[in-house]
Amino acid sequence: MTDIREAAEAAAEILLNGGYVERWVEGAIFPCEMAFFIAVCSLAGVDRVIESGRQDGYSTEILGDWASQNGRQIASVDLEHDAARAAACRQRLAHLPIQLVKGSAYEEFGRLARDGVGRRLALITDGPKGWPAISMMAAATDDRVQVVALHNLNPGTGGRELFERLGGQQSFHEAALKDPGPRWRELKAREIAFAGDTAARSLETSSLGVLRLDDTNRSLLRNAWRSEFGLHQPVMVRALWQLGAYAAATKLYGLSYRLLRR
């Protein structure tokens, strides 16, 4: 694949053929957003995706479908607070090559990112949200990480502004795909037809930021130090992971929220 338009056409084909548009549920990442993430991962040569937050497994199933077609690997972390919901999700995903991990993302995400599996990684987070999620991904970013993505980056938020500063407006699919192909246009039309009357979020302005990393923005993300991170500065989280103190990383996030509300 040579460009984002071609990659987006192939990704749209996966979602259309899998019937994923009509299986979307409120709160999940939109079909076009997932197709864009897959397209960027394909362009970047990603061979392993680490996901945080799977809820009912909608986006996870799409990732598993994509991975099953090309031998890539998927790992997904979730707290699984609701046992019945988690069991149904695991059953839904049982036929796919996905490593399902139960636990705190602040612990398990670090373990998975540091386990040495995969040569070119992508990180996607739909829980936690906001600055804790950004600091977690920044802490996990090393030279293998090619793509990072975060959901619920709504217009006017600091997180969205950060993604646009590091990757430009093309970190969001409506800016990256000014002249989409026919399969993408079909995917978008079906998305609007199915979810347009019920979705709580805008279908025109995506909130999944997908940042492709190069040496420059990878370093800026990895070494970010911001007041919004509170106590969970990426360098501190990374240091705890390097020491094997994964549970302490979770406590650091909790302490930051209790003391600073961030």
Rank of each mutant, 00 (worst) to 15 (best):
Q69C: 03
G103I: 04
D78H: 07
N154K: 15
R238N: 12
G181E: 02
E33P: 08
E26F: 11
L255P: 07
V77T: 08
E186K: 06
G19W: 06
G64S: 05
W66Y: 11
L166D: 07
Q99K: 11
E228S: 14
V77C: 14
S256N: 12
A67D: 12
E191Q: 06
A245N: 14
F163A: 10
Q73P: 01
C32V: 02
S227R: 13
A138I: 09
F229E: 02
F163W: 06
S219G: 14
F172E: 08
V46F: 07
Q170R: 15
S76L: 02
G168I: 03
Y257H: 15
L43E: 06
V147G: 06
D126K: 03
A94T: 06
W184Y: 02
R262M: 06
V117P: 00
A67M: 11
L231P: 00
I50Y: 08
L187D: 01
L213H: 09
L243D: 14
G118S: 04
E161G: 15
L166Y: 01
V117E: 10
V210R: 07
R72L: 05
C32I: 03
C32F: 03
A86E: 01
L96G: 03
A200R: 14
I134K: 01
L15F: 00
L112K: 02
K178P: 07
V210S: 12
N152K: 07
P97S: 01
N154G: 11
A67V: 00
H151P: 08
I74F: 03
V40E: 14
T125H: 10
